[in-house]
């Protein structure tokens, strides 16, 4: 069978589908001071998984606000700098109007994912951290 660390090199998704891969990628991103990219990506996935229903409405609103505040509101943050202004406006308006949709972070997540696929992920595959691990 293919060792996990070789599968990590196939695609960003195969890396993010493996706990050890995530941990190593996070260590790398921390060194580069951009582990928020990864946390944001997973926060968006987790948010989408929360089914809207009467019992968790308050939680979903609180969580949407927390994600917005931590990653998007600060325009100097690594995540905020990589998200298009229109996407940020859409999220801000959704939070302010309390229109909390499971897909409200999808576009922002895609933008961060594209950035990782084009930038941090290929750099990770050439990094000492990854090469030493293999």
């Amino acid at each position: 069978p293919t060792p996990p660390y070789l599968r990590w090199a196939e695609s960003l998704h195969s890396l993010l589908d493996d706990q050890d891969g995530i941990n190593l990628f996070r260590t790398f991103l921390k060194q580069e001071d951009c582990s928020d990219l990864l946390d944001f990506w997973f926060a968006c996935s987790g948010f989408r998984k929360l089914e809207p229903n009467d019992s968790n409405e308050e939680k979903r609103l609180k969580l949407a606000k927390a994600i917005f505040k931590k990653y998007i509101l600060d325009s100097n943050g690594i995540v905020s700098r990589q998200i298009k202004p229109a996407t940020k406006t859409f999220i801000r308006d959704s939070v302010m109007r309390q229109q909390i949709d499971p897909a409200m972070f999808d576009q922002a997540q895609m933008e961060i994912q594209s950035m990782m696929e084009e930038n941090t992920y290929p750099v990770f595959l050439k990094s000492d951290i990854y090469l030493e691990y293999t």
Binding site: L16, D17, D18, Q19, I22, D39, F42, A43, C44, S45, G46, F47, K49, L50, K59, K62, L63, K65, A66, I67, K69, K70
Partner: peptide, 20 residues
């Protein structure tokens, strides 16, 4: 009541793959 950080952390963990 969860603090915002706890809520975020829980959300991030919920999206992670489970250990195989």
């Amino acid at each position: 009541i969860d603090s915002e950080d706890d809520l975020l952390q829980e959300c991030i963990s919920s999206a992670m793959p489970k250990k195989k």
